[in-house]
Write a protein that binds this DNA or RNA. Structure first.
Lengths: 224, 224
DNA sequence: ACGACTATACTTAGATA
DNA sequence: GTATCTAAGTATAGTCG
């Protein structure tokens, strides 16, 4: 037997927890994202499953995959969520009541958040930063953060106000996520200012276009 | 050397193409879907990535995963709004600090919920759950709970769908009395037998790999 | 249909260029 | 940032209960 050293240690087992090292996290993100999309592609091809996968990196780059069409899949999903009417089950009534209660809480939180933002803005210096949040063509006009701008909600058009609240919601989730990991403001995303969206480049399985749509609505699908 | 026969042939290489055999396809779908969600959960935890995964089986059962919240992620995607949390702005720090405070309670609830579910599952079996990986937005988990059942949105009547989704929404935030609801809800869902409704309008399958809002951003790479 | 098994195919962490 | 490489860790196809 030889005494040759192994070239690498090979793969090591890791714990599934937040990776703190930034560059290591980046590499892992790239590798695993690729792996995830590959798996997604294989699943959709093998089983004819329609699907949508959206991934935001911690720097908010967006990567996505969809089969046969990501927007159609999302729309289907949302249609399912937004359907309306009806009541006859007691347990469901209870759940709905609870849901409404939670919505109220949420609304209150948002009100409070807005108040806090207003205060924060008042304290902050008069930075001039503007952001346009158009539905089809989001642009950040300069390097500042949009929420620095003293936004006068009263003067915003209704549409703009909705977009503003939307962005606020996004911020809430980002913050929530960071709180969840208890590593708030680790400083890993300093300076990024654009809301980028990525085009996904990946291998296209051969039968990508061979999906049998007649099968999608029939009764002979999975009975799971 | 012995002549002992191998117990199994082990894993075989397969081609990535549509599986024609229905039952085989079903099994593969279940296994690979589980694998996909696991990978998704690992990615979101390891890298703090926000993400949404929606999968329709060929019978239009929907399974989804989101972190930290599937709806917020989808909305962010659709609006092209991916606000970046910077690390050096005063107003922002104030805002985040305040919001963290507001969110703290809910996150604790979530953690407890996860713990509760893990315990509940441990009672039934030793099987690990994906909840342990911080999959806060998981809607499809393991067997044993009514919300494990994939929702056949296509077959549910409008009003039933509404109620179901609201109930599910409630559960995502606050699950109580799981056993009681399990019985009721699984009966409701499983017992529904309505004529198929074709709500999904799929586009031409030439856009196998979904993308983004356009290339106007022109970003690339992880981009810190 | 559902799990458990297990040999094998595939993925990937760490190192390196 | 990207692209290998390698060994080891994982996922899973086929099979059986």
């Amino acid at each position: 037997m030889d005494t040759m050293l192994k070239k690498t240690q090979g793969r090591k087992k890791i714990e599934i927890k937040r990776i703190e090292n930034t560059s290591n996290k980046q590499v892992t993100f790239s590798k695993r994202r690729a792996g995830l999309f590959k798996k997604a592609g294989e699943l959709s091809v093998l089983c004819g499953a329609h699907m949508a996968v959206i991934v935001f990196s911690s720097a908010n780059k967006v990567f996505c995959y969809g089969h046969p069409d990501i927007h159609a899949v999302i729309e289907s999903y949302q249609n399912g969520l937004s359907s309306v009417v009806g009541a006859d089950d007691k347990a469901q009534e209870v759940l709905i009541a609870e849901y409404n209660k939670l919505c109220e809480e949420k609304h209150k939180e948002e009100e409070e958040l807005k108040k806090k933002m207003a205060e924060a803005k008042a304290e902050a210096s008069e930075k001039k930063t503007m952001m346009e949040m158009g539905m089809t063509g989001v642009q950040v006009l300069n390097e500042g953060f949009w929420w620095d701008e003293p936004v006068d909600l009263v003067r915003l058009e209704e549409r703009e106000r909705q977009k503003y609240m939307m962005a606020l919601e996004t911020l809430r989730n980002k913050v929530a996520d960071r709180a969840h990991h208890k590593k708030i403001m680790s400083g890993t995303v300093a300076g990024t200012s654009l809301p980028p969206v990525h085009r996904l480049h990946m291998m296209a399985p051969d039968n990508c276009f061979g999906t049998d749509f007649g099968d999608q609505f029939g009764n002979h699908g999975f009975g799971v």
